[in-house]
């Protein structure tokens, strides 16, 4: 199955254009700032963005089915706090991480069940879960960041190196590769695409649509939870208010990457490049001492532009779909002449 060929032409080019934009941005910032184009800075950017890359990759697959998870940011905050609390309570870090991941998975299960069993719109269902998650994150730590009593090795996860590469970059690399393989080389990717494109066809082909949707909700929740653990480890604390706009970064990356809200197609590579574009802009602008608020504004503008671009594609294809094939009108005329 050669899935690369199955992507419509424009998307291949959209990913390519994104890549060009990415390169251009790198060149621009490299010229503008002495500190930008350095290995250390790139490692730094990748370390900071590893959580985003992981979750966005998973959420792209979910979006291919036409679903979305807004509760990812709440899940990230909640998982970070829970992980820190468990670590501070003296649990071995691995055990703490496993318990946290299991709790984070709960978000995915609830989201998935609300969407598949109760048929609630994924936007509203996960918005509700976002509130509940945000509240829970504050409740478990009593509204205070968890900083004291953390074991010495708490920050190791994010600061250790393996084979000369920082561990978070390796995790992101492994995770993103996994989701790329899932999307492009396994049946799950194909089925996710089929569900978003023509749900009825998927059902009639005997695909277990609900199980796959639920599974992808769980996958996104797991990645968000892992992101929480990684973020807690990076800052050395469990902060219930961290990274409020995480899910927005995820949306921006996915939509700019060329995956439409309605699903049916999607590109992990596109999402990852788009995420890196957002990150490079942020990093580059702060190198140039541009106010951080511009980042927020630019993200918003990118989101709106990406929406308009994606919708234009949709409108375009609709026009094509409703235009009758040329032979039809000719045939109609022929018969109408014959009928007279």
């Amino acid at each position: 199955m050669k899935q690369a060929n199955t992507l419509p032409g424009f998307m291949k080019s959209q990913t390519f254009i994104l890549f060009l934009v990415f390169i251009a941005l790198n060149i621009f910032f490299a010229l503008m700032s002495d500190h930008f184009f350095q290995l250390g800075n790139y490692f730094n950017m990748l370390k900071q963005s590893s959580a985003l890359l992981l979750t966005a990759a998973a959420a792209t697959m979910l979006m291919m089915t036409g679903n979305f998870d807004l509760s990812a940011s709440a899940n990230l905050a909640f998982s970070g706090v829970l992980y820190a609390l468990l670590a501070a309570a003296g649990l071995p870090l691995l055990l703490a991480a496993l318990i946290t991941l299991a709790a984070g998975m709960g978000f995915g299960l609830i989201n998935g069940l609300l969407v598949t069993r109760w048929e609630i719109s994924p936007f509203i269902a996960t918005l509700g879960m976002m509130f509940i998650g945000n509240g829970l994150a504050l409740v478990v730590c009593g509204g205070q960041s968890v900083r004291s009593g953390l074991p010495d090795n708490f920050r190791n996860l994010m600061n250790a190196e393996l084979l000369g590469l920082p561990v978070p970059i390796l995790i992101a690399l492994v995770g993103c590769t996994l989701f790329w393989v899932l999307t492009n080389r396994t049946l799950i990717g194909k089925y996710a695409m089929a569900i978003g494109s023509n749900r009825n066809a998927a059902v009639l082909s005997g695909i277990n649509v609900n199980a796959i949707t639920l599974g992808l909700f769980v996958a996104v929740a797991l990645m968000a939870s892992l992101s929480g653990i990684m973020t807690a480890s990076r800052i050395g604390a469990g902060d219930p208010r961290i990274y409020e706009f995480f899910f927005m970064d995820v949306v921006v990356a996915i939509m700019l990457g060329g995956t439409p809200l309605s699903g049916g197609r999607g590109s992990i590579i596109g999402t990852l490049i788009a995420a890196m574009i957002v990150i490079v802009i942020g990093n580059g602008l702060s190198m140039l001492n541009v106010l951080i608020f511009w980042q927020t504004i630019i993200k918003g503008v990118i989101l709106i532009v990406a929406m308009i671009l994606n919708e234009k594609v949709k409108f375009g294809s609709r026009v094509v779909a409703t235009t009758p094939p040329a032979d039809r009108s000719v045939a109609n005329q022929a018969t109408s002449v014959a009928a007279q």
Binding site: K190, N198, S205
Partner: peptide
């Protein structure tokens, strides 16, 4: 499924 090839559709499921 519009987004899949004919082969992809024929084997779907």
């Amino acid at each position: 499924v519009d987004e899949l090839t004919i082969a992809g559709n024929l084997t779907l499921g």
